[in-house]
Structures are given as structure tokens and as C-alpha cells.
Design a protein around this nucleic acid. Sequence first.
RNA 1: GCGAGAGUGGCGGAACUGGCAGACGCACUAGACUUAGGAUCUAGCGCCUUUGGCGUGUGGGUUCAACUCCCACCUCUCGCACCA
Length: 821
Amino acid sequence: MRYNFKNIEKKWQKIWDEKKIFEVKDQEIGKKNYFVLEMFPYPSGMLHMGHVRNYTISDLISRYKKLQGFNVMHPIGWDSFGLPAENAAIKYKKHPKDWTLANINKMKEQLKAMGFSYDWSREITTCLENYYKWNQWIFLKLYEKGLAYRKESVVNWCNKCKTVLANEQVENGKCWRCSSEVVQKSLEQWFFKITEYQEQLLQDYEFIKDGWATRIIDMQKNWIGKSEGTTINFDINNLDENIKVFTTRVDTLYGVTYIVIAPEHEIVNKFITILLKKDNTLAKNIIDFIESVKKQTELDRNMKGKEGIFSGFYAIHPFTNKKIPIWLGNYVLATYGTGAVMAVPAHDQRDYEFAIKNNLEIKIVITPYYNDSNSKNFELKNKAFEEKGFLVNSAEFDNLKSDEAKIKITEKLIFLNKGNFTKTYRLKDWLISRQRYWGTPIPIIYCKKCGIVPIKFDDLPVKLPESVDFTGQGDSPLKYISDFVNVKCPECGNIAQRETDTMDTFVDSSWYFLRYCDSKNDSMPFSKEKTSLWMPVNQYIGGAEHACMHLLYSRFFEKVFVDLGLVDKKAIEPFTNLLNQGMVIKDGNKMSKSKGNIVDPDEMLKKYGADSSRLFILFAAPPHKDLEWNEDSIEGANRFLNRFYRLFDEIFNRKDDSLEQKRNIEQMHNSTIKKILEDYENFGYNTIIATTMEAINFLYKEKDSTNKSQLLNFISDICILISPIVPHITEEIWQKLGNKESIILSKLPVFDSKKAEKDKIIFVIQINGKIRAKYDAKKDEIQENIEKIIFADEKLKTYLENKKILKKVFIKNKLINIVVK
RNA sequence: GCGAGAGUGGCGGAACUGGCAGACGCACUAGACUUAGGAUCUAGCGCCUUUGGCGUGUGGGUUCAACUCCCACCUCUCGCACCA
């Protein structure tokens, strides 16, 4: 017989739903709270396999923790603001809200069909007023604290999405969402001051280093990009100005032969003003150069090589007082450090290339450590020498090692008041303005008289207007809604203008986990009392692609909330354990629409059901690895479940129960429990399934000669153990076995260590590493009778008598080892 | 270039603290049952010159014993990348 997964799965999903079995109270006596969180989906219309895998793993952990006796919260919601809804509105002439809510309904069905154990009573939908109101509330709190500010600066603009992007959302010069080229624009925008927290973000890895993959932490550290060095002030010849440069190699200071500044550097304007009076051609050339660099994308700058132009000005070397030419160069980033570098062509490859191209002086000031005897004769071999070494041609610093010289030189700079030790970070403030409709309105009004005026907390929410035309042309649709834009200033009552930008949707996802703890609160985004019952999240599960976006922003928000007194300090890090599941791959590529290799979860569910799908996904690869999609394997999963059900069915319907209880069944039973419980702790979900299959194979062989209740007892424990993986079929068997309560409310079986001790094991007799014989015995038995056992074997006896036994026989694990000459 | 991870059959992957490499599954082969088999069951399945030998990316080392530890190298994947 085949088990009917369609009926069984539907039946139990309905019962679980009706009994509200997954709804969790904030506290339950005698139980510890455990918060399982998965990255909530964007409601695009259909779950993709990445979601299915992510949520299958989360569901397994949630159900396992329940069986362990925890009070588990496993919530779900919808990250439902964002650009695709707006694009769909333009394309299908459907309102983003309708489109989004319809998608949510569809996807909710899919989630339910997978049998995921969500507490739907805590569901959140970020595009609804009762959520985004609190985005605005949080914005205003940050504004109060000076952590939200408006500033004109050069920002990333995506022409296709028609909005600005945060630095984190630009990948290799392209938009993270649509992959089109990102250009630079100077605009006035809202920022969150994440840089205020950069040091703390680095320090607090202390609290999560055991629970996060080092890869993710490294990615974040890299992104924050802390670097320690020295800032030097270079005076400018015949001009009462100076240029600050940042360097990590101040030991090469005597090798500076020119200065390069970014074309965007503020001093350039001064240069031009002066030059226009003295040297019109040079000024024009410089202006042309700046224009041409502006047109280059990041990629161009990389590809075209280093370009530059002499500014006409000279800097003064702080120690030698020599005149050093100041150049403008396309390879200097305006946004990093001071936007100016001291060029040491002998010891920096970029400067070297630039110097060769522009025929600038190259001066060696470092020689390799091994080159001590003739260090003065050290020569470059068509490239810069970038390693550390001994200083030469550096006056009183000659013969010092690089590290020592860095300190001494900086100390002298400090003495001369020309520089200091500095730390520089790559991280920039988080740009949160978006020129799009489908997002949280920024709660700000601009008044000619009063300037920037925040909305009063009591006046929240600033509602997103619903009747809007989506033409796809021009600016954000919000700009054209005069009711929305033209308002009275809350301060002076005069006509004022509302901010029409909305917030980056990453604002929504930076605190949603806190809302789950207190999802119905209508006076605060969340209460400290409720969040402190659940936070920090015990286990977070999601993809690694969010390392420098969502995961970094959330850490930042959490720290702000702690400082604002909104959450307890014990949750200074929001996610203590993070599991990054691998990607789902088909034909060697990540599943995606553009690759055309999508597998529709609906089809999978229809053909094989939820349990088979879950089993397949967990069995095919360990959770952190990429998973290769294989249609044949899912059939294998389905086959196994049928086999399992058939085994149960056959034993269950057997009339005769007079057979003996068997020791080997008891042993297998016990060791199966042990292995599976261990694997749950080590994320070895694929081997849990392998162990279960072994047990089932074993039972098939033994069933006809074994006591019925002993067999059913074993099957019952298997059901509990694998119910987090295949909840429906196990619940069905569990109930047939006569249990009244749901299997979800049961407890994990316990491994009996006393029983295991007495085991008979197969011992292997190994001589010089080669296996010579096997022997079946109890451990203590064999320890006493080693010689008898060995010499009972004639062949072995002769062999050993011919050789000389060198070391005493010893036993380890399942091995008797003899060392001979 | 910098940072992280990984290399084991035809494939996905097992192997706890160094202790029978290839568990479990897929694919494949043969057989059984069957009107039928794409259901199910049984057996086989790393390679070779098969009473034996060789095998965990390559080359060395430690050890009675190495996928596992040490040294050198190769390859692949991912992340970052003109960051001064």
C-alpha cells in the first residue's frame, strides 16, 4: 500500500491550524523561551526554492526545540515594501498594494502547504500602516538623537530604478537589484549615522564570534574597513592652505615625490580660481580633466588606467622642505580617507604606474630585509617594492625597520604639529532616501521659515496616499500629489512642503524581529518588557548575501535601541547564532528567473507532497552547503517515506504478538537515538536521515522474527525523532499508535548510556596497521583474553611466532593492535 | 592582489578525539514477482593484472596506523578589490 500524502498532509495542517498549536505565549511556566527567526520573504508572488530551503531548516529547528521542551517562538511576516510592486503596478496597471496583498495570500498558502509551524498570530506586513508608522517613529527618534541627518553629497543613482542607493547596495558599480550601471549624482538626501557606531560594531563581534560564520564577520569587517595609519599635513607653496593625506606607510615618507588628490577634492576649486588669473590654458585643461573623470564609471576608472594632470601647485615636504608637485588623479577616491594621497612610486604599485606614465621621480627608501649588505644598491624590477624592510635615504631614520620607523616618524610629525596617528574607515553613513512611491514616507516637512521640521509623534503615521498614477515616467509619483505635498508647517502654520522621498526598505527589516515579540502593540513599536523575554534571537537562519546590508543595519539599529533605552542591554547583538544556508543550484547555476532554471514549489508539492520535499531538501546536502537540485533524489525521498509507512502498516496490522524481544533491536534502537540527537546539535540533518534509513532497513530485515510491541516502540521513537523533518507522516503514525496528543507536544526519546556500555562489538585485530582478523566479543571479555583469542587462530599464531612482537598489544575503540618487527 | 572555504566512486554526500574509507541515497547491472513495470523485493556496484595489490587534488613528513596531524604546492568556489 502507498500512503496518501495528499490527504494526510491536508488533514494535519487543518488540525494544527484549528488547535492553534503553534501559537506561543510570551512566557510559559517551567519552559525557557527560544526565538527561531528566518529572514522574512519579499512577497514577489511565489516562493522560490531558496525560501523553501531556508524555511525548511528553520521549521526543523523550531520543531526540534519544542520537542526539547522550549517555549518556541517561530514567527513569519512580509517584507512588503519595495520596488517590484511599483514596477508591477506600471506593467499590469494594478495598485502596488493590491498586487502585494494578493501575493501575500498566495505565498501564505504555499507556506501552509509546506506544513511550517508558524505562529500566524504574530504575522507582520511592513507595507501596512500599523507597521510603517513605527518606521517613522524610529526615524524621528534617530533624528532627535542626531543620528538621522540631511546632507548634500555625491550619491549612487540607478537610472533604471530611478532612485539613489546606499553604498552597500552597489555591487561592482552596479545596482544590487537590477544590475544596471550606477552613476554618481550630487543630491541632498537623508542619512542614518551608522559611522557613529563603527567602533562598537567592530568590538561587539566578541559576543557573536562563536555563533556566526567567520566568513560573514570577515565580510562585515572588510566592509567597515578600519585601517590604522598616519595623517600628514602638507603645506602648499605660496598659498596659505594645506592638504591632508592619510597613509598606512608613513615609513616611506622620504620617498614621496608627488601628491595626488581626487578631482573632487575641495582645494581644486581654489587652484582653479588662482590659475584662471595666471595660466588660463592650464586651468582649462584641469577643468576638462575633471569633466572627463566625472563621466567615467567606477569600472572605466579601473579599466582605462591611471590618468592625471599637474595642478600647477607644489606641496612642501614636512621634513625636507622640498617642493613636491601636486597632481590630480583619477585613481584617488574622494570618498576614502582625506581624498588625497602622498605618492611613493618606489613602494606603491599604483603610484609607480602613475609615475612611469607621467615621468615623475621614483625614490627608493625601503630595502628588503635580506638585502642588508648592499642595500644601497637595491633596484626595482619594473614594479614597486611594497613590502616592509629597512629604511634608506631617510636621514636620521635610516636602517630602522618599517614598523619602528612608522612610530618614530609619526612622533616627529606630532612634534612639528604636522600630523598624527589616525584611524580611517571605509564605512559610510547609510543613505536611506528613496525616490520611489512604495515605501515608508519620511516624516519631515520643509518650511521656508522654520527649515526642516519633523512631524510630531502624535501626528504619526504620515500615511502613504493610495490614489496615485503609475506612469513610470519622471520623478516619484508622490511629488505630483498636491494634497500630500502641500501642508501647513507644524511650527508656524505657513504653507510648507512635505518630504516626498520614502525610506529604504532595509529600514523595515532592521527591526522586524523586535516587532514579532510585541506585534500588536499600538502605543510603541515594541515594549522593553516583551522584547527582553525573547531577545536576542537564539537562532537566525538566512542567506549570506545579506552580510553587509540587512545584517549590518540590524546590528546598528539594535545598538541604537539599547542606547535609547528601548531594548535591554543583553540584546546588544540581535542575533546570537546565525546559520547561512547554501544556495539552491540547478545545472550548475543559482536558480533564478534570468537563468530560466526555476523549479516551482507548487509542482513539487503537488507531485511529492510537503514531507518528501522537506526530506529531499534536508537530505541532499548539509545546510550550509549549496544544494544541487536533482529530480531523481526527490523521488528517492518519496520512496523512502512510502517504505517507512509500509513497514509501520505491516507490523501494526500483524495479529501475532508472541515473538521474543530481541537484543539487537534494542541496541539499534538505542544507538539510533544517540546518533540522531547528536546530529541535531551539529546541524547534521542529512545524516539524521541516513541514520533513520539505516534503522528502517534494519527493521525490514528483522521484523518477521521480532516482538511486535518492541518494533512499534522503536517506530514510535523514530517518529518523534524525525517529526521535525517530516511532520505529517509521523503525526499520522503517531496517532495510529494510539496517542491522543499531537506529536509536536511530545518529548524526545532519551539515549540510555548504560545499555550501550554492555554492547558486543566486532573487534578488529590489526598487525602493523593491516587487518588480520575480526572477533566478535564484549569489551571487558576481550581485555582479559587477548592471547587466547589471538592464538586460537592457527594462521595468526604462526605469523606472530615468526615475527617478533615489539610493542604490547593494546586496545583502542574497536581495535586490537599488535606491533611486530 | 587581499580575505574565507572546499577538493573523497558515474553523482549528492558519510567517516566521532588519527583506528575496517566510500555509511545513506541517486544512477546503473542482474534476478524474483507480475498481463505489464517507471510499483515492490533480492543481490551486485572505487580501480586493477583479484588467495593479491592500488586508492580520499599533488609531492614530502610524523605514526604500528593519516581523508583526518605537519610542511610545500596545484585546482575550484565565494566575498572584497585603485581603500592610500
